Computed example of a mutant assay.
Amino acid sequence: MEKKIELLVKWLQDQVQASKLNGLIVGLSGGIDSSVVAHLIVKAFPEQSLGVIMPCKSHSNDQNDAMLVVESSKIKAMTVDLTETHNLLFSQIKNNLLDRDEWNEQTAKLGDANLRARLRMSTLYTIANNYRYLVVGTDNAAEWHTGYFTKYGDGGVDLVPLVHLTKGEVREMAKVLGVPDEIITKAPSAGLWEGQTDENEMGTTYDMIDRYLKGEKVPDKDRQVIERLHKQSEHKRRLAAAPPKF
């Protein structure tokens, strides 16, 4: 694992050098993946790395956990509260659709959550432009394979250093890097609503996805869920579709 960390740090340095930019930025959610990325980018660029905490109708515990990562990694950090911005934009969209009698309450919860993810990524890129930094994503192999990320939200980034690591490997790397135990052991959650967890939303566990990705046998129920999620999310892993040239 230490060798993998060394290779990832060198890769991050090479990417910045090739882009002729100055450093790296990541959004800090208080979750394990962004915590690992924060520790990695500080190793790559001790003075030119930045973590941004972006509460948006978030649980206060998430901010507290994000601050634990700031302390453990020694990353420079700032907080941009997006709650008011999100409420204003979402209510304007909702009111316009209500006026047209076309508001879909059934899809509103997901639209609300995806807007938060996209506002966060827009915020990261605006700050990145200021410092001339690359935006680093936090998706691991399980999330990438199943499409458990928001298109043009947390999936809209420049670099994805964890994309070949299973969730189990991310946990192992977190321990080596010194990520606080409270973050390593807590249930993975995007913090989208009260009581929300990744695994409940996906319908399977990270352990099952990890086993599937490693070619191990998993129960048919879990295999079907994983393969369905992968097929449904194929568009997220591609560039925008274009027609044949004519």
Rank of each mutant, 00 (worst) to 15 (best):
M67C: 08
V69P: 01
K74Y: 11
K74M: 06
I75M: 14
V80D: 08
D81H: 07
D81L: 04
E84I: 00
T85I: 05
T85Q: 11
N87W: 02
L88Y: 15
L89E: 15
Q92S: 14
Q92N: 12
K94H: 06
K94T: 07
K94N: 10
N95A: 13
N96K: 07
L97V: 02
L98A: 13
L98N: 14
R100G: 04
W103R: 07
T107Y: 10
A108H: 01
L110D: 12
L110G: 06
L110T: 03
N114P: 02
L115K: 11
L115Y: 08
L115A: 13
R116E: 04
R118M: 08
R120N: 11
M121Q: 13
L124N: 07
Y125M: 12
Y125G: 10
T126F: 13
T126Q: 15
I127Q: 10
I127M: 12
A128D: 10
A128M: 14
N129G: 15
N129C: 14
N130G: 14
Y131D: 08
R132K: 15
R132W: 14
Y133C: 07
L134I: 12
V135K: 02
G137R: 01
T138Q: 06
A141S: 13
A141K: 07
A142R: 01
E143M: 08
E143A: 11
W144Q: 07
G147L: 11
F149R: 01
T150I: 03
T150G: 08
Y152Q: 10
Y152D: 11
G155C: 05
L159C: 10
P161S: 14
V163T: 08
H164M: 01
L165G: 03
T166P: 06
K167Q: 10
R171L: 06
R171T: 05
R171W: 01
E172K: 12
M173F: 01
M173L: 14
A174V: 05
A174S: 11
A174H: 04
L177T: 05
L177H: 03
L177D: 03
G178A: 13
V179N: 02
P180Y: 13
E182S: 14
E182F: 04
E182R: 15
I184V: 15
I184N: 03
I184D: 02
K186V: 04
K186G: 05
S189K: 04
S189R: 04
G191P: 00
L192D: 00
E194A: 11
D198I: 00
D198Q: 09
E199D: 11
E201V: 00
E201H: 05
M202E: 02
G203P: 01
G203C: 08
T204M: 07
T204L: 08
T204R: 07
Y206F: 09
D207P: 00
M208W: 02
I209Q: 02
I209L: 05
D210R: 03
R211Q: 15
K214H: 06
K214V: 03
